[in-house]
Computed example of a mutant assay.
Amino acid sequence: MDMFVFDDFLRSRYGAIFSVALCLMLPTHAFAGHPLATEDSGVQGRDNVQFELSVDRAVERDSRLTSQSVNATVTYGMTDALDVAFSAPWLRNQISEDPDKFQRGVGDASIFVKWRNYQDGKFSLALKPILTLPTGDSAKGLGNDRLNPGGTGVLGWGGDSVSLSANLAYTFNDNKLGDRKDIWSSSFSVVAALANRLSGVAELGAYRNSNAASRKNPVFATVGLVFHPSDKLDLDIGYRNLLLDSRRQYSIGAGIAVRR
Protein backbone atom coordinates (compact mmCIF):
# COMPACT_ATOMS: atom_id res chain seq x y z
CA MET A 1 0.00 0.00 0.00
CA ASP A 2 1.06 3.62 -0.35
CA MET A 3 2.16 4.20 3.21
CA PHE A 4 3.34 7.81 3.21
CA VAL A 5 3.90 10.42 0.53
CA PHE A 6 4.92 13.42 2.66
CA ASP A 7 8.39 13.73 1.13
CA ASP A 8 7.16 13.42 -2.47
CA PHE A 9 4.64 16.23 -2.07
CA LEU A 10 6.92 18.50 -0.05
CA ARG A 11 9.37 18.54 -2.95
CA SER A 12 6.84 18.79 -5.79
CA ARG A 13 6.00 22.00 -7.64
CA TYR A 14 3.73 22.83 -4.73
CA GLY A 15 6.68 22.68 -2.28
CA ALA A 16 4.38 23.31 0.68
CA ILE A 17 2.02 20.42 -0.07
CA PHE A 18 2.23 17.28 1.98
CA SER A 19 -0.10 14.34 2.18
CA VAL A 20 -0.49 10.86 3.55
CA ALA A 21 -2.27 7.83 2.15
CA LEU A 22 -3.13 5.86 5.23
CA CYS A 23 -4.97 2.60 4.94
CA LEU A 24 -4.48 3.64 7.31
CA MET A 25 -3.67 0.77 6.64
CA LEU A 26 -10.86 -5.67 12.68
CA PRO A 27 -10.58 -8.51 15.01
CA THR A 28 -7.22 -9.64 16.35
CA HIS A 29 -7.42 -12.87 14.37
CA ALA A 30 -7.71 -11.06 11.01
CA PHE A 31 -6.58 -7.47 11.42
CA ALA A 32 -7.30 -5.60 8.20
CA GLY A 33 -5.22 -2.45 8.45
CA HIS A 34 -6.35 0.89 9.82
CA PRO A 35 -5.01 2.47 11.93
CA LEU A 36 -1.89 0.39 11.32
CA ALA A 37 0.37 0.54 8.28
CA THR A 38 1.72 -2.93 9.13
CA GLU A 39 0.05 -5.75 7.22
CA ASP A 40 -0.95 -8.91 9.04
CA SER A 41 -1.11 -12.44 7.60
CA GLY A 42 -4.87 -12.82 8.01
CA VAL A 43 -7.11 -13.42 4.99
CA GLN A 44 -10.87 -13.22 4.50
CA GLY A 45 -11.56 -16.81 3.46
CA ARG A 46 -13.27 -18.13 0.33
CA ASP A 47 -16.14 -15.94 -0.97
CA ASN A 48 -16.01 -13.57 2.01
CA VAL A 49 -16.02 -9.82 1.37
CA GLN A 50 -14.74 -6.95 3.48
CA PHE A 51 -15.32 -3.22 2.95
CA GLU A 52 -13.10 -0.69 4.75
CA LEU A 53 -13.47 3.07 4.95
CA SER A 54 -11.00 5.32 6.78
CA VAL A 55 -10.61 9.07 7.26
CA ASP A 56 -7.30 10.65 8.30
CA ARG A 57 -6.08 14.17 8.96
CA ALA A 58 -2.35 14.96 8.94
CA VAL A 59 -0.71 18.12 10.30
CA GLU A 60 2.85 19.40 9.99
CA ARG A 61 3.79 20.69 13.43
CA ASP A 62 5.82 23.76 12.37
CA SER A 63 3.83 25.10 9.41
CA ARG A 64 0.44 23.76 10.55
CA LEU A 65 -0.28 22.76 6.95
CA THR A 66 -2.95 20.05 6.84
CA SER A 67 -3.91 17.15 4.61
CA GLN A 68 -6.99 14.94 4.67
CA SER A 69 -7.43 11.54 3.10
CA VAL A 70 -10.45 9.28 2.72
CA ASN A 71 -9.61 5.74 1.68
CA ALA A 72 -11.99 2.97 0.58
CA THR A 73 -10.89 -0.65 0.17
CA VAL A 74 -12.86 -3.70 -0.98
CA THR A 75 -11.35 -7.14 -0.36
CA TYR A 76 -12.64 -10.47 -1.72
CA GLY A 77 -11.54 -13.92 -0.62
CA MET A 78 -10.73 -15.88 -3.77
CA THR A 79 -9.75 -18.95 -1.75
CA ASP A 80 -9.19 -19.76 1.91
CA ALA A 81 -5.61 -18.51 1.52
CA LEU A 82 -5.81 -15.81 -1.19
CA ASP A 83 -7.41 -12.33 -1.16
CA VAL A 84 -7.71 -9.79 -3.97
CA ALA A 85 -8.43 -6.14 -3.20
CA PHE A 86 -8.89 -2.69 -4.70
CA SER A 87 -8.19 0.53 -2.80
CA ALA A 88 -8.89 4.15 -3.81
CA PRO A 89 -8.08 7.37 -1.89
CA TRP A 90 -9.54 10.87 -2.02
CA LEU A 91 -7.13 13.63 -0.95
CA ARG A 92 -7.37 17.26 0.13
CA ASN A 93 -4.01 19.01 0.53
CA GLN A 94 -3.48 22.52 1.85
CA ILE A 95 -0.90 24.30 -0.35
CA SER A 96 -0.20 27.49 1.62
CA GLU A 97 -0.73 28.99 5.06
CA ASP A 98 -4.07 30.21 3.76
CA PRO A 99 -6.53 27.44 4.76
CA ASP A 100 -8.69 28.26 1.73
CA LYS A 101 -5.91 27.34 -0.72
CA PHE A 102 -5.81 23.60 -1.35
CA GLN A 103 -5.84 20.89 -4.01
CA ARG A 104 -8.29 18.05 -3.80
CA GLY A 105 -9.31 15.01 -5.82
CA VAL A 106 -8.79 11.30 -6.35
CA GLY A 107 -5.34 9.99 -5.50
CA ASP A 108 -3.49 6.97 -6.89
CA ALA A 109 -5.55 3.80 -6.54
CA SER A 110 -4.03 0.36 -6.01
CA ILE A 111 -4.74 -3.29 -6.74
CA PHE A 112 -3.22 -6.00 -4.59
CA VAL A 113 -3.45 -9.62 -3.58
CA LYS A 114 -2.49 -11.30 -0.31
CA TRP A 115 -1.47 -14.92 -0.22
CA ARG A 116 -1.03 -16.67 3.11
CA ASN A 117 1.37 -19.30 1.89
CA TYR A 118 2.37 -20.91 5.18
CA GLN A 119 0.82 -21.58 8.58
CA ASP A 120 2.06 -23.80 11.37
CA GLY A 121 0.29 -23.38 14.66
CA LYS A 122 0.61 -19.77 15.75
CA PHE A 123 3.15 -18.84 13.06
CA SER A 124 2.23 -17.79 9.53
CA LEU A 125 3.76 -16.21 6.44
CA ALA A 126 2.12 -14.15 3.70
CA LEU A 127 3.07 -12.32 0.51
CA LYS A 128 1.32 -9.18 -0.71
CA PRO A 129 2.20 -7.96 -4.23
CA ILE A 130 0.70 -4.56 -5.12
CA LEU A 131 0.36 -2.32 -8.16
CA THR A 132 -0.28 1.41 -7.66
CA LEU A 133 -2.17 3.00 -10.56
CA PRO A 134 -1.63 6.58 -11.86
CA THR A 135 -5.23 7.68 -11.24
CA GLY A 136 -4.38 10.89 -9.35
CA ASP A 137 -3.69 14.25 -11.02
CA SER A 138 0.08 14.70 -10.78
CA ALA A 139 -0.17 18.35 -11.86
CA LYS A 140 -2.07 19.01 -8.63
CA GLY A 141 0.27 16.93 -6.50
CA LEU A 142 -2.33 14.20 -6.08
CA GLY A 143 -0.54 11.36 -7.87
CA ASN A 144 2.74 10.02 -9.21
CA ASP A 145 1.74 9.72 -12.90
CA ARG A 146 3.47 6.32 -13.14
CA LEU A 147 2.69 2.66 -12.45
CA ASN A 148 4.46 1.61 -9.26
CA PRO A 149 4.78 -2.12 -8.50
CA GLY A 150 5.82 -3.44 -5.13
CA GLY A 151 5.40 -6.18 -2.60
CA THR A 152 5.38 -6.95 1.12
CA GLY A 153 6.54 -9.99 3.02
CA VAL A 154 4.60 -10.67 6.23
CA LEU A 155 5.58 -12.71 9.30
CA GLY A 156 2.78 -13.26 11.79
CA TRP A 157 2.36 -14.81 15.23
CA GLY A 158 -1.07 -15.10 16.81
CA GLY A 159 -1.65 -15.90 20.48
CA ASP A 160 -4.86 -16.01 22.47
CA SER A 161 -4.73 -12.35 23.47
CA VAL A 162 -1.71 -10.92 21.61
CA SER A 163 -0.82 -10.95 17.91
CA LEU A 164 2.47 -9.81 16.38
CA SER A 165 3.25 -8.89 12.76
CA ALA A 166 6.49 -7.92 11.03
CA ASN A 167 6.74 -6.51 7.49
CA LEU A 168 9.51 -6.00 4.97
CA ALA A 169 8.42 -4.25 1.77
CA TYR A 170 9.83 -2.92 -1.50
CA THR A 171 8.35 -0.42 -3.97
CA PHE A 172 9.67 0.56 -7.39
CA ASN A 173 9.06 4.31 -7.14
CA ASP A 174 8.98 5.27 -10.81
CA ASN A 175 8.76 9.07 -11.04
CA LYS A 176 9.67 12.24 -12.97
CA LEU A 177 11.10 14.17 -10.02
CA GLY A 178 14.52 12.55 -9.78
CA ASP A 179 13.59 10.73 -6.58
CA ARG A 180 15.02 7.40 -5.54
CA LYS A 181 13.28 4.58 -7.36
CA ASP A 182 14.11 1.75 -4.97
CA ILE A 183 12.17 2.26 -1.75
CA TRP A 184 12.17 -0.19 1.14
CA SER A 185 10.05 -0.10 4.26
CA SER A 186 9.84 -2.16 7.42
CA SER A 187 7.54 -2.19 10.42
CA PHE A 188 6.49 -4.18 13.46
CA SER A 189 3.09 -4.17 15.15
CA VAL A 190 1.40 -5.52 18.26
CA VAL A 191 -2.35 -6.13 18.68
CA ALA A 192 -3.53 -6.92 22.21
CA ALA A 193 -6.98 -7.71 23.60
CA LEU A 194 -7.78 -5.15 26.30
CA ALA A 195 -11.36 -6.24 26.99
CA ASN A 196 -14.02 -8.53 25.56
CA ARG A 197 -14.66 -6.33 22.51
CA LEU A 198 -11.74 -3.89 22.63
CA SER A 199 -8.20 -4.20 21.25
CA GLY A 200 -5.17 -1.94 21.55
CA VAL A 201 -2.69 -1.60 18.68
CA ALA A 202 0.81 -0.16 18.36
CA GLU A 203 3.57 -0.17 15.76
CA LEU A 204 7.01 1.15 14.87
CA GLY A 205 8.32 1.51 11.33
CA ALA A 206 10.71 3.19 8.92
CA TYR A 207 11.08 3.58 5.18
CA ARG A 208 13.76 4.75 2.77
CA ASN A 209 13.61 8.47 2.04
CA SER A 210 12.69 9.01 -1.61
CA ASN A 211 14.64 12.29 -1.57
CA ALA A 212 17.96 11.34 -3.18
CA ALA A 213 19.66 14.28 -1.45
CA SER A 214 18.80 13.04 2.04
CA ARG A 215 20.37 10.19 3.98
CA LYS A 216 17.85 10.37 6.81
CA ASN A 217 15.06 7.82 6.58
CA PRO A 218 11.60 8.68 7.93
CA VAL A 219 10.46 6.81 11.03
CA PHE A 220 6.96 6.55 12.47
CA ALA A 221 5.04 5.24 15.46
CA THR A 222 1.32 4.48 15.74
CA VAL A 223 -1.07 3.75 18.59
CA GLY A 224 -4.79 3.08 18.42
CA LEU A 225 -7.91 1.33 19.66
CA VAL A 226 -10.28 -1.02 17.83
CA PHE A 227 -13.81 -1.75 19.03
CA HIS A 228 -15.48 -4.99 17.85
CA PRO A 229 -19.28 -4.65 18.21
CA SER A 230 -19.64 -7.98 16.37
CA ASP A 231 -17.63 -10.48 14.35
CA LYS A 232 -18.71 -8.59 11.20
CA LEU A 233 -18.01 -5.02 12.29
CA ASP A 234 -14.98 -3.10 13.61
CA LEU A 235 -14.53 0.56 14.51
CA ASP A 236 -11.11 2.11 15.10
CA ILE A 237 -9.26 5.29 15.99
CA GLY A 238 -5.55 5.93 15.71
CA TYR A 239 -2.71 8.44 16.17
CA ARG A 240 0.56 8.42 14.19
CA ASN A 241 3.75 10.43 14.70
CA LEU A 242 6.14 10.77 11.75
CA LEU A 243 9.67 12.21 11.74
CA LEU A 244 10.82 13.19 8.23
CA ASP A 245 14.29 14.80 8.13
CA SER A 246 13.85 17.75 10.55
CA ARG A 247 10.09 17.97 10.05
CA ARG A 248 7.55 16.38 12.33
CA GLN A 249 4.04 15.45 11.34
CA TYR A 250 1.22 13.78 13.17
CA SER A 251 -2.02 12.28 11.91
CA ILE A 252 -5.25 11.22 13.57
CA GLY A 253 -7.89 9.05 11.96
CA ALA A 254 -10.85 6.75 12.29
CA GLY A 255 -12.06 3.78 10.30
CA ILE A 256 -14.75 1.17 9.89
CA ALA A 257 -14.54 -2.37 8.52
CA VAL A 258 -17.61 -4.43 7.56
CA ARG A 259 -17.41 -8.10 6.57
CA ARG A 260 -19.89 -10.38 4.86
Rank of each mutant, 00 (worst) to 15 (best):
I183L: 13
D8Y: 15
R260A: 13
L82K: 11
S124G: 08
G33I: 03
V258K: 11
F4I: 12
D40T: 15
N196M: 08
E60S: 13
D47M: 09
R197Q: 12
G136H: 00
V223S: 05
A85Q: 03
I111K: 02
S186E: 13
A202I: 11
S87K: 07
N71T: 15
S163N: 14
F4H: 10
D236M: 14
W184S: 02
G15A: 12
R146G: 08
R46Q: 12
G77E: 00
G141R: 00
V162S: 06
I17V: 05
I183G: 01
D40I: 04
Q119K: 15
A16Y: 11
S210C: 05
S210T: 11
R208G: 07
N93P: 06
D98A: 07
S96A: 09
S87A: 13
G253P: 03
V84M: 04
R11N: 15
A81C: 12
L235C: 07
D40G: 12
N241T: 09
Y76E: 01
G200M: 04
P218Y: 00
A72D: 08
R104D: 14
N167Y: 07
D7F: 09
F6K: 07
L168T: 08
C23G: 10
E97Y: 03
W90Y: 15
I237K: 02
R64E: 14
L142R: 02
D160F: 02
N71F: 07
R215Y: 05
R197Y: 08
G224N: 01
R104L: 08
D80Y: 05
G159M: 09
D245G: 09
L22D: 09
P27F: 01
F188H: 07
P129G: 12
S230C: 03
T222K: 00
L131H: 04
F220A: 09
S186A: 15
K114N: 01
P35L: 04
G33S: 13
L53P: 00
V154C: 05
S163W: 04
P218L: 00
S165H: 09
